[in-house]
């Protein structure tokens, strides 16, 4: 009887250890503790060019993450990219004249959306659109512009 009891205890310890490991992976290793993507409201923004922005890319203001990119669609009428941003509910004081940029984290890093707050007293709500946007910097275009300006200098 004592032997069965011991094996029962050991099995219990084993299963508890396994669940602790799963819990550790979920809370400490993955983004579950910081995700909270469930509750929030959506904003949209149109960009001429989103570069290599991806769904789930962070949306930040002053470097703090306010939400994530929820969806990226293509607008057939204006030929622009329609980006849906999901902002967490607690950040509900974003002015209507906020400016949305697409930045790159580091030289080779992934792209994210940076918001510059405007001065309007009115705030954006669910489904509203951010009017002022700036496209992603595409490296080839920058090099092209640089070469063009160099060539013009040389021509004078």
């Amino acid at each position: 009887m004592a032997r069965i009891r011991l094996s029962e205890i050991l099995v219990g310890v084993f299963m508890a250890l396994g669940f602790v490991a799963l819990f550790f992976l979920a809370m400490r290793v993955s983004n579950l503790s910081t995700a909270a993507t469930g509750e929030g409201y959506n904003l949209t923004a149109k960009f001429d060019n989103i570069g290599s922005l991806r769904v789930r890319a962070p949306v930040t203001m002053a470097g703090v993450r306010l939400g994530r990119v929820e969806a990226i669609d293509f607008d057939q009428e204006t030929f622009q990219a329609l980006v849906t941003l999901r902002i967490e509910d607690r950040y509900d004081q974003i002015p209507t004249d906020t400016f949305a940029n697409i930045f790159t984290a580091g030289l080779l890093g992934e792209q994210y959306i940076g918001l510059d707050p405007g001065g309007s007293p009115e705030v954006l709500g669910d489904g509203d659109r951010i009017e002022f946007t700036q496209s992603a910097l595409v490296l080839e275009q920058m090099i092209g512009q640089f070469l063009l300006s160099k060539a013009e200098e040389g021509g004078e």
Binding site: L17, G18, F19, V20, A21, L22, F24, L25, R28, V29
Partner: peptide, 12 residues
């Protein structure tokens, strides 16, 4: 699955 989770957690 429990063993694999333990392996990953201990590995981290």
């Amino acid at each position: 699955p429990l063993l694999a989770a333990l392996f990953s957690a201990i590995g981290v």
